[in-house]
């Protein structure tokens, strides 16, 4: 069953960019990677899936219901989004930031219930932030603040998690850590869809891939079907060799200078 489905979705910014006639189903339980060159429409696609952008044509559905017609709180109880580089000029502690993930479950005036505190604790633990609980969010490094945003999304106890380039600007160890976390969440039953910059990481960790090129879906399917020499050349314009990963067998790209 599809968690999110896009039916003939189109979106354009002025004349310069257009995402056209996208048909896409994000299956329940998948770990989907969305790849493509800069400006191919990856982030726009994610914002459409999250409901933040309203398609100019076509329909986005969450579990079969039109997303645009659902109350925001109901959506946020099922779907959490981790955006890129969200910073704030205000002082919040890590715990306060993560507690915001409980907002869709609380009515106004209501104070946090034991269940909310448990969800926050669990999210902090899963993201490896136990030590950071009382630290100010503002002073954290890029990798740490990214983990806080992921923990906030986990506190929403979502069925589907959308992420926009969660590993960009992070060093190798942090990248690995975040992908390991996403894989583990996925194994526990969470549907995950992420816009990814790094083709090799995407091929290594994702179950399915969607490759965008110039606002259209160029290829979709298993990493093996999407990551081919011809596709990479068509999508990115780069000349590469594709070889299996030494231990996992997933296709990996090597740039040929």
């Amino acid at each position: 069953m599809a968690m999110i489905s896009l039916e003939k979705v189109s979106y354009s910014y002025g004349d310069s960019f257009r995402l056209a006639d996208i048909d896409l189903e994000v299956e329940k339980g998948t770990l989907l990677g969305i790849i493509g060159s800069n400006g191919s429409g990856k982030s726009t696609l994610l914002k459409l899936m999250a409901g933040y952008l309203v398609p100019q044509a076509g329909l986005v559905k969450l579990e079969g219901r039109p997303l645009g017609a659902m109350p925001r709180k109901a959506v946020a109880q099922k779907l959490a989004v981790v955006t890129q580089g969200a910073h704030s000029d205000f002082d919040f502690t890590v715990e306060e930031m993560v507690s915001l993930g409980r907002l869709p479950f609380l009515s106004r005036w209501q104070s946090e219930r034991p269940g909310d505190a448990r969800a926050v604790d669990l999210a902090l633990e899963r993201a490896g932030l136990d030590q950071f609980r009382h630290r100010p969010y503002k002073g954290l490094s890029g990798g740490e603040s990214q983990r806080v945003l992921i923990a906030r999304a986990l506190a929403q106890e979502p069925e589907i998690l959308l992420l926009d380039e969660p590993t960009t600007y992070l060093d190798l160890a942090y990248q690995q850590e975040i992908f390991t976390l996403l894989s583990r969440l996925n194994e526990d039953g969470m549907t995950v869809a992420a816009v990814l910059h790094d083709v090799n990481m995407a091929a290594l960790y994702c179950k399915d891939l969607v490759a965008l090129s110039r606002g259209e879906i160029f290829a979709k399917g298993s990493p093996e079907t999407v990551i081919t020499r011809e596709n990479i050349r068509a999508i990115y314009g780069s000349t590469v060799a594709v070889s299996p990963h030494p231990t996992r067998g997933r296709p990996q790209v090597t740039v040929l200078p």
């Binding site: 959506v75 946020a76 969200a86 915001l100 907002l103 106004r108 929403q156």
Partner: peptide, 18 residues
């Protein structure tokens, strides 16, 4: 609480159900 979310930016607040 909505102000806490809005202080993160409107897009963030939107995703938190505001």
């Amino acid at each position: 609480r909505d102000l806490d979310a809005l202080a993160q930016g409107e897009e963030q607040a939107y995703y938190l159900g505001v």
